[in-house]
Design a protein around this nucleic acid. Sequence first.
DNA 1: ATACAAGTTCAAGTTAACTTGAGGTCAACA
DNA 2: TGTTGACCTCAAGTTAACTTGAACTTGTAT
Lengths: 152, 152
Amino acid sequence: MIQKGILDIAEVAKASGLPASTLRFYEEKGLIESIGRNGLRRLFDSSVLQRLALISLGRSAGFSLDEIATMFTTDGPRIDRALLSAKADELDAKIHRLTALRNGLRHAAACQAPSHLECPKFQRLLRMAGKKRLIRADKRERGPLKPAAANE
Amino acid sequence: MIQKGILDIAEVAKASGLPASTLRFYEEKGLIESIGRNGLRRLFDSSVLQRLALISLGRSAGFSLDEIATMFTTDGPRIDRALLSAKADELDAKIHRLTALRNGLRHAAACQAPSHLECPKFQRLLRMAGKKRLIRADKRERGPLKPAAANE
DNA sequence: ATACAAGTTCAAGTTAACTTGAGGTCAACA
DNA sequence: TGTTGACCTCAAGTTAACTTGAACTTGTAT
């Protein structure tokens, strides 16, 4: 640590487990900020580690970097809150689906059926969460190309 | 329906909500099979819809198409079951992380902090699921390049 | 018999999220 | 003062999961 609370990029990389190239990439995307330089070398405030943890969590929840970036901005409080709420709902639905799948897998791991995924009990377990649109349930988990086809 | 239980690609597309191009792509990848042709036109058994639902569910759980494909094969029952169990564990961890994030978002949507993601209560909610390695918690959600760096 | 809407193949393009490579620059140590 | 290891920039490459385009084939309706 060069000064109290200030880390250079190598230290951030080590502490976060992320390669320096990713940190540069995130900075370019506006997800994190470097607080200065030592020669060429980037310096970060140690709070960047918090930030990175948040980013990682968001990613594992299925959010894109762009979405995460907008969550970090303190722009308009109104539309923003609605968006967070919507995200929470999305997550809720996803959690239910994953729970059903987990239960299904747990059973399949100890079941007779030849092709696990097709055992009838497994199917039934899944159906529990599939109440609503099972297929194409979420709008492009990490969307391809078309802005929004005629579909939906 | 041309015959009982047999659908052509357009019908499958309509019923599943997936574009025909995706169905061809899945067939090429070995995720689904067409049962024959009518001229050039692919014909599918209606059970393919089950299959597609399963694929969709797996995708939304964060599995890659390749992983899903191996889950469908009825190769060796031993190694396979362990794999399913491991997948279930992975899902479990993920579900916990998502639950924490959802709680955090719910709070953030009704909280004062300027940059929602940085409100202290939000942070605390997240910490509940972060017990273990928060950063780089999962090995490449949908992995980039390196086979397995020196990391971990 | 002819038209044609809808399917087919195959190659190439797209997007997100990074990584890799080439060539350049320093701060720090000997 | 000189060397050097670690960082820098910028462009180009990579992977997964599809999509798109061009050129071709056909069952079905007319």
